[in-house]
Design a protein around this nucleic acid. Structure first.
Lengths: 189, 189
DNA sequence: TGGAGCATGTAATGAGTTACATGATTGG
DNA sequence: CCAATCATGTAACTCATTACATGCTCCA
């Protein structure tokens, strides 16, 4: 019976397929690979790493560096555990959207307060979309070409769709709520 | 200094604005009001409820029923704590999307396995969108009319935008990944 | 050469999920 | 009236976040 692991641990195993990495490095890779749609903190990384070392899914690789800096590498069991995890159909996503929560309780909240929140959040989402777009534009025209990481492109595409949807929603809100347009639509660009 | 509360507790206070409710009832209201974008389990409800009772944000109201069934009502401090929470600008949403995680590690995952996952998830999202749409269509034409809960409309609108975006993404994936279209697009309807 | 700021890890706390226990209800 | 099912609550566990501690590095 192979060891069962959670998604967080699995992601680490995934990253270790390419090269041995230390905990700190792993947390950076994770951040940059998935940032907004699967965040992992350093604490989690170290916890999962040491658990996995205990059950033999990873093992120390090479010299410890300064501090307790220690690269880990995949074991065969680790590779197997990763494959098993990947084969399992992934759970549905969970979304926790505090703004939506406040909004749904809107009848007990001051209108101005809500308006503020909406403006702030809209701006933030516009920022993110702009960020994704600028990465997108630096991709080669043929996105299926050699040397392009298709998987990164796919997740980036999700990010753009998501942010576009959210912005569209912000902009239809005034109509739905029957209130003044509070969105600073010009800040989209 | 008013007591600081978290979003989960705050949502309960929100629901209690309308009427006293028991823990079980609260968990049902929460589920139906926000389901997919802010889920709360019964365990959380009871925990927050008893914490809040301890610090005087809610208090037992009326007779305990069979079992330990006990309705709670808002206190003034509770009302205040809610308002304070609502006034604070809400945190950014967090999204944990296991499918996206697998996909981003796609280069270490079998193509067929990925294809399966994509198909399964696409179907589920199509189902959800259909569900939202059918609720949407039962709304009166003038959504700002009396008797319509604007706040519910607003969150529902978000749900639709979100699911539309996700489906759009699924359908562009084959192009991006340069693989066979695995999406059963006809199951959209 | 020392101290400001970054790198790296750990510990404490809080939030969320799963599994369980037992009381109520109701159709056969 | 009993067995199946639903209602209601609790406890144990896992996961995630925040706050903290201390080691390194580098340039003024």
């Amino acid at each position: 019976m192979g060891t069962t692991i959670n998604a967080t641990a699995a992601s680490l195993l995934g990253f270790l397929h390419d090269a041995p990495l230390t905990g700190y490095a792993l947390s950076q890779v994770a951040e940059e690979a998935l940032g907004n749609f699967w965040s992992i903190t350093r604490s989690q990384v170290y916890r999962e790493l040491s658990r996995m070392a205990d059950v033999g899914l990873v093992r120390p690789s090479g010299e410890p560096g300064p501090r307790d800096r220690q690269p880990y590498e995949l074991t065969d069991a680790g590779r197997q555990a990763f494959a098993a995890w990947a084969a399992d159909t992934p759970n549905a996503e969970t979304i926790r959207f505090p703004l939506l929560l406040v909004l749904s309780l809107g009848r007990h909240v001051d209108d101005d307060v809500l308006g503020d929140h909406l403006r702030t959040h809209r701006a933030e989402h516009a920022r993110r979309l702009a960020e994704y777009d600028s990465i997108w534009e630096q991709l080669p025209d043929d996105v299926t070409a050699e040397g392009v990481d298709r998987w990164r492109v796919a997740t980036l595409a999700f990010g753009r769709r998501y942010e576009q949807a959210v912005l569209g929603w912000f902009d239809e809100l005034p109509d739905l709520l029957g209130i003044q347009p509070t969105n600073n639509a010009e800040s989209t660009l």
